[in-house]
């Protein structure tokens, strides 16, 4: 029982990271019908930006003296990473995706694979292919309830992710740009005819999705201790599966899917074998495609004939 609770807590914290990344996949797919393969790499760049900006803010001195890194500096790290990733997302859209936006479906897909590959390998050249230990932006504090260990890091991950998701919800529901995003995902041509500057809205979508992924990157670094330039491949894939599981194009779906994938992964690691924790995502993907391809919260889209 304690073990089960432990796994659920770990799963929810990991799952909220997946959810943050899945949001970017689902928003972009909702509007452009494009699997943004480079999204996992934006997540990776976000993690590295956090790594370097924490370094620039002198985190090693705090670590050497066993002092806690101040919370406000931690927030600066988070905001810097989110802003950098947003910029990267916008750049990717502008340079790589916009020129092929109206090409046949495979062209943007291959472009996205190319961008993903480029960032992975540019990352290996810039950041070195070796894993880096993530700086202790948050010093670990353990609490124990009836044998279940909860750390402040897991709690922070959960709370930060929750706040960001709420923020996204408000953004999409209450702001003009958010409403325009929903209009585009409903019908991009009609939105254009209504005078919405679609380029601008797509740019904002990439910025918002990328910023969320960067936050996920920092939380991932805190949780998993090490980062490397290829971390976006598998994590990105899992987050994409989360988006498909929840119903691609659906924002609440991405959150639910992310949490479920995180849980499934932790429970597999805990009860089956740690080696198959990555395989379970793939099994889930196959099952969802077979049984309910529109996802848990997705709607069946009727193609216009």
């Amino acid at each position: 029982m304690t073990q089960l609770l432990q796994q659920i807590i770990n799963g929810l914290s990991l799952g909220s990271i997946y959810a943050l990344i899945a949001l970017g996949y689902t928003m972009v797919y909702g509007i452009l019908k494009l699997i943004n393969f480079a999204h996992g790499e934006v997540f990776m760049v976000g993690a590295y930006t956090g790594y370097y900006s924490a370094g620039a803010l002198g985190i090693s001195a705090y670590e050497a003296q066993h002092r806690d890194f101040p919370v406000y500096l931690g927030l600066i790290v988070l905001v810097t990473a989110m802003a950098t990733a947003a910029l990267l997302g916008v750049l990717i859209e502008l340079l790589a995706y916009r020129p092929v936006r109206n090409a046949p479906r495979l062209t943007p897909l291959i472009t996205a694979i190319g961008v993903s590959l480029f960032l992975q390998n540019a990352g290996m050249l810039l950041f070195s292919p070796n894993p880096q230990r993530y700086p202790a932006i948050l010093s670990e504090v353990r609490f124990e309830f009836f044998g279940v260990i909860v750390t402040n890091i897991k709690l922070t991950i959960f709370v930060v992710a929750l706040c960001l998701m709420l923020g996204l919800h408000l953004f999409v529901q209450k702001t003009w740009t958010g409403r325009a995003m929903r209009a585009l995902s409903f019908n991009i041509d009609a939105a254009k005819l209504m005078g919405i500057d679609t380029d601008n809205v797509i740019r904002s979508t990439f910025a918002v999705g990328s910023a969320l992924a960067a936050a996920g990157g920092i939380l991932f670094g805190l949780d998993q201790i090490t980062i490397n330039p290829l971390m976006g491949v598998l994590t990105g894939l899992k987050a994409f599966v989360a988006a498909v599981l929840g119903g691609i194009g659906s924002i609440p779906g991405a959150v639910v899917g992310g949490l479920l994938i995180g849980l499934a992964e932790q429970l597999t690691a805990g009860y089956l074998s740690a080696e198959y924790r990555d395989a379970i995502t793939f099994v889930i993907l196959i099952l969802i495609l077979l049984l309910k391809p529109e996802g848990l919260l997705g709607v069946v889209r009727v193609e216009k004939v």
Binding site: I35, V233, F240, V244, D278, T281, F282, I286, P293
Partner: peptide, 26 residues
């Protein structure tokens, strides 16, 4: 192919990407 090819082709991209990784793990 059976599950992913019933649907739009870009799902195949993701499933094969996952498959490639899983087969290596196996």
């Amino acid at each position: 192919g059976l599950p992913s090819l019933r649907l739009r082709g870009d799902y195949l991209a993701v499933v094969t990407l996952g498959f490639g990784e899983i087969i290596r793990i196996l």
